[in-house]
Design a protein around this nucleic acid. Structure first.
Lengths: 394, 394
DNA sequence: CCTACTTCAACCAAGATCGAAGGAAGTGGC
DNA sequence: GCCACTTCCTTCGATCTTGGTTGAAGTAGG
């Protein structure tokens, strides 16, 4: 359940690829493990062909380090972050570097199979342009709703998706290992692993057309009992006492303050907004009506998060999703949170935007699938190395 | 940070003492580790004098097991659970068995030093009666408020305690190792470790004169950033819009539904209640006014917990504290929770009373101090065994 | 050119845990 | 009584990890 600081293959590659470490010694300090341990693991990765020695680095007074680099030709993974109206897709090389990401006009509103087919086409068009070297190792996909066994169990804005085994369908379509998870969970994983703050316990909020969060405990994703952790959309707020929600209860937070709710509210007032991004743009243009609405939504999120922070006492609250790109929104969240939270819990609390921005979910999806794919590959290599040995030995 | 299933000394002893395991083989299956590992650890504990072999068990078709028992003469720890008006004290033997527990009329209302002095006297009177064999190994104390570095940082009903280093004072008074922690945290630890359900992630609520909770993640206590996790008393609820709270904000949950708040409300209506227990008693006697008030408080807790359950998606919510002894209260909590929570999160959720009842906090305090004390003792023994070897060897 | 010093990575021993194997101590059928 | 079988516990090597040491590689200064 915990894999934060362990020198997993994917993590070693990520450090090398990101430039955070380019020699064995640097890896050892970055991972916090003994040099000898790193040495062995690097040897494995070299043999597996996913790392290469590229030469020597500059000496710092002593022996020159042997520089390491990921073998780009070893392959890549591709990711998708499915939203209500838009979908973000991208490619990660084997070292966890984002080679490319883009937004495509594809929503989960269609039938599942049609959506996934369109996604498949879009991904392959992207791959034709990007032309990453090597082979497709795996794919990771984020869906906007609680995911269990590869299927969405509570699709609020996704008609027809309930119980549809997306993982199975994708495996068939893409013909490679696939992981499917909730979008906010993937965002939390991505942000936690790419921007390594010294923080162990995080709440990462995705405020887009819906609102969800991912929870990081001890550096690893906390999934809860049914992989349903992080739901904050159905908290009861006074501001929405009479608004109905897809869950069947009135007064839910997301029914008032989600991007979709803001669009509705503004359209009711005659404004020409279609999506959450439209709302954010209008707010940046300082349209008074919009900015008031956005601030109110942010303040409400702050209030909701105050409850979460009091209970969970995390090291940081990180904001992502389309709404978080609005300065006004973030400011309102901060204000609402500090206003309603115990000083004890906010004293050491960081509240900021996700550093990986709109790509956070893609990073999470890619890194998650890289973990499993690389582990399998190393295990296979270890097997193939021991078996012949036994033959030769006896 | 995680110590749930590891074969720690205290855990081995607890299993033996509780009767859950009386032979090495049973220990191995209970701990989920190899028999050889258990064998070595048992040898250590035998040498340390905290375990003894008592003879043979019944054969089950093969060789008879050698039965193990904790060496009662090896010592004991004593515990205290300090409340606003009452305090519960008890003694644990080295195997984690509760030898005795009682409630004494001592509250945290006095000055800290006076309270601790009175506590010391009460504990020694208790020890004179109980006469546990062996020596006092350590003491664990629970305080009703957030604890940092052995001191309460936000004493809501404890004038004069703010910043008072209780751990230091107790170490001097009792002259033994001491652990001090939040009462709800200790309750969570106690309940999680004594009644080992197959559950990994728990929320344990203490609903007494105040309301707090302890969070168990992966079998171990989750403490958060500032050891301040589990605070649910300051969640905003509609029912208490205008009631002031010690935190300076209006509308806090605990200002409406804590035991202290219920006492106030009922007294304002002319009822003769002094403490939370009085309220519970009156409710059990089916006094209409009281039972309505208690049910309302329970329903509110259920609503608050619905938020927590949606976010945290635990395996179980366990209710403790004086209020939880009221059937009506527990029923109202259940109703409120199921009413406001997503079915997804309650499908596999257990909602029940703590099985260790009023002693949950004592168990937690005792087991926590046993952990550290036993580890130290084994380490000391290991040292004393290696050092002479070196002398003799050279 | 030689020496002193720094840094890197391979090697080694120590500790923990595990699985397999085996001895010890029983039961039960013949 | 003998033998097969079961169960319990210990022993032994294998594996994985870690920290410390050593030798290799290189720099800086005289």
């Amino acid at each position: 359940m915990v894999d934060s600081e362990s020198p997993s293959a994917a993590r070693v590659l990520q450090l090398v690829a990101s430039g955070a470490a380019s020699s064995r010694t640097e890896l050892a300090t970055a991972l916090g493990v003994a040099q000898s341990t790193v040495s062995l693991r690097v040897q494995e990765l070299l043999r597996a062909g996913v790392l290469t020695e590229t030469g020597h680095g500059r000496s710092q007074g002593g022996r020159r380090p042997r520089t390491l680099a990921v073998a780009a030709e070893a392959g890549y993974v591709c990711m998708a972050d499915l939203g209500g109206a838009h979908t973000r897709i991208g490619v990660l090389d084997i070292g966890g570097r984002l080679l490319h990401s883009e937004e495509i006009p594809l929503g989960a509103g269609e039938s599942p199979q049609a959506t996934l087919d369109a996604l498949h086409d879009a991904v392959h068009t992207m791959l034709d342009t990007v032309r990453p070297s090597g082979v497709l190792l795996g794919a990771g996909i984020g869906l906007p709703g609680p995911v269990q066994d590869g299927a969405v169990t509570l699709p609020s804005r996704m008609p027809g998706w309930r119980g549809f085994d997306a993982a199975h369908a994708l495996r068939r379509t893409f013909d490679c290992p696939v992981v499917v998870d909730n979008d906010a969970n993937l965002m939390a994983i991505g942000e936690a692993r790419v921007t390594n703050r010294g923080k162990e316990n995080l709440v990462v909020v995705k405020a887009g057309s819906g609102i969800g969060s991912g929870v990081i405990v001890g550096g690893a994703l906390y999934r809860g009992n049914d992989n349903a952790s992080g739901d904050i959309s159905h908290m009861r707020v006074a501001a929405g006492a009479d608004l109905p929600c897809s869950c069947g209860i009135r007064g839910c937070f997301a029914a008032v303050a989600s991007g979709a709710a803001l669009v509705e509210q503004l359209r009711a007032k005659g404004m020409a907004v279609e999506s959450t991004s439209d709302v954010v743009r209008a707010a940046e243009n300082a349209e008074p009506e919009v900015i008031t609405t956005v601030r109110a939504a942010g303040s409400l999120l702050g209030e909701v998060l105050a409850t979460i922070v009091n209970f969970f006492n995390p090291d940081a609250v990180l904001l992502g999703g389309a709404l978080s790109t609005s300065e006004a929104y973030v400011a309102a969240v901060r204000a609402g949170l500090y206003d309603r939270c115990l000083p004890l819990s906010t004293r050491n609390l960081e509240i900021s935007r996700v550093r990986t921005g709109a790509d956070a979910g893609l990073f999470g999806a890619g890194l998650l699938v890289l973990d499993t794919v690389l582990d399998e590959r190393l295990a296979a290599l270890a097997d193939s190395r021991t078996e012949p040995d036994e033959k030769a030995g006896v």
